[in-house]
Measured scan of single mutants.
Amino acid sequence: MASQGTKRSYEQMETDGERQNATEIRASVGKMIGGIGRFYIQMCTELKLSDYEGRLIQNSLTIERMVLSAFDERRNKYLEEHPSAGKDPKKTGGPIYRRVNGKWMRELILYDKEEIRRIWRQANNGDDATAGLTHMMIWHSNLNDATYQRTRALVRTGMDPRMCSLMQGSTLPRRSGAAGAAVKGVGTMVMELVRMIKRGINDRNFWRGENGRKTRIAYERMCNILKGKFQTAAQKAMMDQVRESRNPGNAEFEDLTFLARSALILRGSVAHKSCLPACVYGPAVASGYDFEREGYSLVGIDPFRLLQNSQVYSLIRPNENPAHKSQLVWMACHSAAFEDLRVLSFIKGTKVLPRGKLSTRGVQIASNENMETMESSTLELRSRYWAIRTRSGGNTNQQRASAGQISIQPTFSVQRNLPFDRTTIMAAFNGNTEGRTSDMRTEIIRMMESARPEDVSFQGRGVFELSDEKAASPIVPSFDMSNEGSYFFGDNAEEYDN
């Protein structure tokens, strides 16, 4: 783990906690998980779902989305002020799938948001429990990260689609708070800032007046979040320049895209947490497990152990491969979309394939898809080993990566060399080191050039047997250095459309 220093740990961010010791953190995270579980059980009762239907990941996603929508204050306010045809701002819903006479049927349900809020609060001892809501947002974000390569979004903001390893959390809503900021990748933060800068260039009043003052505060806050992700002084200094700019424009845009590229080699610290679907927490609570009393951590053995003992089902389209669908969801559960496939294969105990080789589309089923041909199958979400999630980018030494994705962002704290394609990355730096950030740029390029592919990161860190909950005997895996390590390699994943 990167030293926490003055930073709060993510469990504290996750639970809005002030400084807590490890036991208190485990208890408050457990409380959050228990609340999600209780809410899910109650919703299944309301909807009269069978046990099997309640364990269907598509039903879980609909129920999670309903509660997130019920608590989305800004959108609710907007919907009330701008009524649109056929949208009731006070209601929320989605597809629920039921097994009827041996076939899967889709039923569109509609609930009062007020009623959903009441059920959620009741499951969370009367609190709004925003930490639990954020947790579900991060699960949705991790699922998107594993399912889609955001080529269009990258290109629109002047970045290269091969930089997708920097895009963790790119679909997280803005209201996801400190826990959300911690899991956002460098590219995601750059993209958010670039969008602001572009608006400022096109709209003279963007930075002016009372609204402009708020915009400015948001801009500086985002700059500080991004600065905190960088691990070298030169990158941090460049972020200070971007933040202090009187009138952010093209120079800042250039600096930010430069920094994003540099992060492929001088990786930023991005938190990883295993956020599971509500249909995993519900049955665990129903079986009598007391998360608050037992304590829970999002970055240790607990999620692995929970998945070892969970039964989750998914709808499967006619030509999809259930094992591939399982891999997709497994990666999402562990926030591992940008991790090295060699490491993932070792931990999972079966070969993890790149996205383009998977015969599976996303987990969600569109409303126009034919239910007649839908089957369902068990998702295999178990693992051979477990490993500690990392909050750091690993040290800054790398190795060759593949054509589709030119770097990785480690999820697990496991000893290995970190793949990246130096030639491709360095070719993108057209040696432009003039301007006010020239000395920093020169320094950053120097550090990137001296990074050695064969150097090892996370020295001495290994994986653990599932029986080793105290992480007492690390097993340090050895990897084939020459092997392909990137998930979005030469990829044809669908595009994420909101």
Rank of each mutant, 00 (worst) to 15 (best):
Glu443Ser: 07
Arg118Thr: 14
Gly34Tyr: 05
Ile444Pro: 13
Phe291Cys: 14
Lys48Cys: 07
Ser345Val: 06
Arg441Gln: 07
Gly295Asn: 09
Arg175Gly: 08
Glu484Ala: 09
Glu210Tyr: 04
Leu49Thr: 01
Ala182Gln: 02
Pro410Asp: 03
Ala260Tyr: 01
Ser28His: 04
Val329Phe: 01
Asp255Gly: 10
Gly282Met: 12
Glu220Gly: 12
Asn76Met: 04
Gln42Asp: 10
Trp386Asn: 08
Ile25Val: 14
Glu80Ile: 14
Tyr40Met: 14
Glu494Lys: 10
Leu307Asp: 02
Trp386Phe: 09
His272Val: 03
Ser262Ala: 13
Arg436Met: 08
Gly228Pro: 00
Ala286Val: 12
Asn397Tyr: 03
Ala237Trp: 03
Tyr52Lys: 15
Ala451His: 10
Ser407Glu: 01
Leu298Lys: 04
Glu469His: 08
Asp51Ile: 15
Asp127Phe: 12
Lys236Leu: 09
Val100Ser: 15
Val100Tyr: 14
Gln235Arg: 09
Thr390Asp: 02
Arg293Glu: 14
Gln42Gly: 07
Leu266Ala: 11
Glu107Val: 12
Gln168Glu: 06
Glu81His: 11
Gly102Leu: 11
Ser407Trp: 02
Ile116Leu: 15
Glu14Ser: 08
Arg243Pro: 01
Ile301Glu: 01
Thr437Glu: 02
Ala22Phe: 04
Thr433Ser: 14
Ser170Trp: 05
Glu495Thr: 04
Thr373Asn: 13
Pro173Tyr: 03
Gly30Pro: 07
Gln311Met: 00
Arg293Pro: 00
Trp207Lys: 02
Ala387Trp: 05
Arg156Ala: 05
Ser9Asp: 00
Val100Arg: 10
Tyr40His: 15
Lys90Arg: 05
Asp51Leu: 14
Ala451Met: 14
Pro89Asn: 08
Glu53Pro: 00
Met371Cys: 07
Leu166Gly: 12
His135Arg: 03
Glu469Val: 11
Leu133Pro: 05
Cys223Ile: 10
Arg150Cys: 05
Glu220Ile: 10
Ser407Phe: 00
Arg65Cys: 03
Gly462Trp: 04
Thr62Glu: 03
Arg65Asp: 08
Arg204Thr: 01
Phe253Ser: 13
Phe346Asn: 02
Glu495Asn: 13
Pro95Ala: 09
Val190Tyr: 04
Asn76Ser: 15
Asp203Gln: 06
Ser383Gly: 13
Phe479Lys: 05
Pro474Asn: 05
Arg293His: 11
Ser176Thr: 15
Gly490Met: 08
Met66Arg: 06
Leu307Ile: 08
Lys229Arg: 09
Leu256Val: 14
Asn202Val: 03
Pro161Asp: 04
Met239Asp: 03
Arg389Phe: 03
Lys31Phe: 11
Ser438Phe: 05
Ala472Cys: 01
Met163Leu: 15
Asn370Tyr: 15
Trp386Arg: 10
Ser438Ile: 03
Glu339Pro: 01
Lys198Cys: 05
Glu73Phe: 06
Tyr289Lys: 04
Asn395Thr: 15
Pro248Arg: 05
Asp302Gly: 06
Gln20Val: 12
Gln308Tyr: 00
Tyr313His: 12
Ser274Phe: 07
Val285Arg: 00
Glu114Leu: 04
Leu315Pro: 04
Gln398Lys: 14
Arg55Val: 09
Ala233Val: 05
Arg175Phe: 09
Leu379Asp: 01
Gln459Pro: 09
Met1Ile: 11
Gly54Cys: 10
Gln122Met: 14
Thr442Asn: 12
Lys325Leu: 04
Asp480Glu: 14
Glu24Cys: 06
Gln415Gly: 07
Pro477Thr: 12
Ile365Ser: 14
His272Asp: 06
Gly362Gln: 07
Ile265Gly: 03
Ala22Asp: 08
Tyr52Leu: 03
Ala493Leu: 13
Leu466Asp: 09
Ser262His: 08
Ser262Tyr: 12
Tyr148Asp: 09
Arg174Asp: 01
Phe291Asp: 11
Glu220Asn: 09
Thr134Val: 14
Ile109Cys: 13
Leu379Ser: 02
Lys103Tyr: 03
His82Thr: 15
Arg461Ile: 02
Leu306Gln: 15
Asp290Trp: 04
Asn370Thr: 10
Arg152Pro: 01
Val456Glu: 05
Leu315Tyr: 00
Asn144Leu: 14
Ile57Lys: 04
Gln168Cys: 09
Ile406Ala: 00
Thr232Cys: 02
Ala493Cys: 05
Gly490Asp: 06
Val456Met: 15
Asn250Leu: 09
Lys103Met: 12
Met105Glu: 08
Gly200Thr: 05
Asp480Ile: 10
Met163Asn: 05
Arg150Tyr: 14
Pro83Arg: 11
Ile406Trp: 00
Ser450Ala: 09
Ser478Cys: 14
Phe429His: 07
Ile316Ser: 14
Phe420Pro: 01
Ala234Val: 09
Arg162Cys: 13
His140Glu: 08
Glu339Ala: 04
Ile197Thr: 10
Asn250Met: 14
Ile265Asn: 02
Phe258Ala: 03
Lys103Cys: 07
Thr151Lys: 13
Val29Pro: 12
Asn205Ile: 08
Gly404Ser: 14
Val363Lys: 06
Pro410Asn: 04
Gly394Ser: 04
Val194Ser: 11
Tyr385Arg: 14
Ser359Phe: 09
Asn247His: 01
Met1Leu: 13
Glu449Val: 09
Phe338Gln: 01
Cys164Arg: 05
Gly5Gln: 04
Glu469Thr: 13
Ser467His: 01
Tyr52Phe: 14
Lys325Tyr: 04
Met481Tyr: 03
Gly94Ala: 11
Ala403Gln: 11
Arg8Met: 05
Lys31Asn: 09
Met105Lys: 12
Ala237Met: 14
Gly393Ser: 15
Lys198Pro: 01
Thr350Gly: 08
Met66Ser: 09
Gln405His: 08
Thr442Ile: 15
Arg38Leu: 09
Met238Arg: 01
Gly185Lys: 02
Leu315Val: 15
Gln409His: 11
Trp330Gly: 04
Lys236Gly: 05
Glu81Asp: 14
Gln398Pro: 02
Glu339Phe: 04
Arg342Cys: 02
Arg152Ala: 03
Leu298Val: 06
Ala181Thr: 10
Gly393Asp: 01
Lys48Asp: 08
Glu375Tyr: 05
Gln415Asn: 14
Pro322Leu: 06
Ser297Tyr: 10
Arg267Gly: 10
Phe230Lys: 05
Ile138Tyr: 01
Thr424Phe: 06
Ser245Met: 04
Ser141Phe: 12
Leu108Arg: 09
Lys77Arg: 14
Arg150Asn: 03
Ser392Arg: 07
Val67Ile: 14
Glu339Val: 10
Glu53Asn: 05
Gly228Phe: 12
Ile36Thr: 11
Pro248Met: 04
Ala182Asp: 00
Arg213Tyr: 09
Gln311Lys: 09
Ser28Ile: 01
Val100Asn: 12
Ala70Gly: 14
Met196Ile: 12
Arg441Asp: 05
Glu115Pro: 02
Thr45Glu: 13
Gln122Asp: 00
Ser3Glu: 00
Leu108Asn: 08
Tyr487Val: 02
Arg400His: 12
Arg99Met: 08
Met189Asp: 05
Ile116Phe: 04
Ser326Asp: 04
Gln399Asn: 07
Asn483Ile: 11
Trp207Phe: 13
Thr423Tyr: 02
Gly187Gln: 03
Asn59Val: 02
Asn319Asp: 15
Arg452Asn: 15
Ala337Tyr: 09
Gly393Asn: 13
Leu226Tyr: 07
Lys348Cys: 05
Arg267Lys: 11
Glu114Thr: 12
Arg293Ser: 09
Ala129Asp: 06
Ile25His: 02
Gly295Tyr: 05
Leu256Thr: 01
Val190Met: 13
Asp497Leu: 15
Ala178Asn: 11
Arg208His: 03
Glu114Phe: 12
Arg208Asp: 02
Arg361Thr: 08
Ser141Asn: 14
Ala70Thr: 15
Ala178Pro: 08
Arg26Met: 12
Phe291Val: 12
Arg152Lys: 14
Asn205Leu: 03
Gly5Trp: 01
Gly34Thr: 13
Leu353Ile: 11
Ser457Arg: 03
Lys348Asp: 01
His272Lys: 03
Arg74Tyr: 15
Gly35Met: 09
Ile217Phe: 11
His334Pro: 05
Leu315Gly: 00
Gly404Trp: 02
Val100Met: 07
Asn125Asp: 10
Ala233Gln: 07
Tyr281Glu: 07
Ile96Ser: 00
Asn211His: 06
Ile347Glu: 03
Lys31Cys: 05
Arg98Glu: 02
Pro83Phe: 04
Arg213Ala: 02
Glu449Asn: 07
Gln241Met: 09
Ala218Val: 12
Lys357Ser: 15
Tyr219Met: 13
Glu14Tyr: 00
Glu434Asp: 15
Arg243Gly: 08
Pro277Thr: 14
Asn211Glu: 02
Val183Ser: 13
Ala218Tyr: 08
Val67Asp: 10
Lys113Phe: 05
Gly126Cys: 07
Ser170Lys: 10
Asn483Ser: 13
Glu469Gly: 13
Gly185Asp: 05
Phe489Ile: 13
Trp330Leu: 04
Ser165Asp: 04
Leu379Asn: 01
Ala332Arg: 00
Gly394Pro: 04
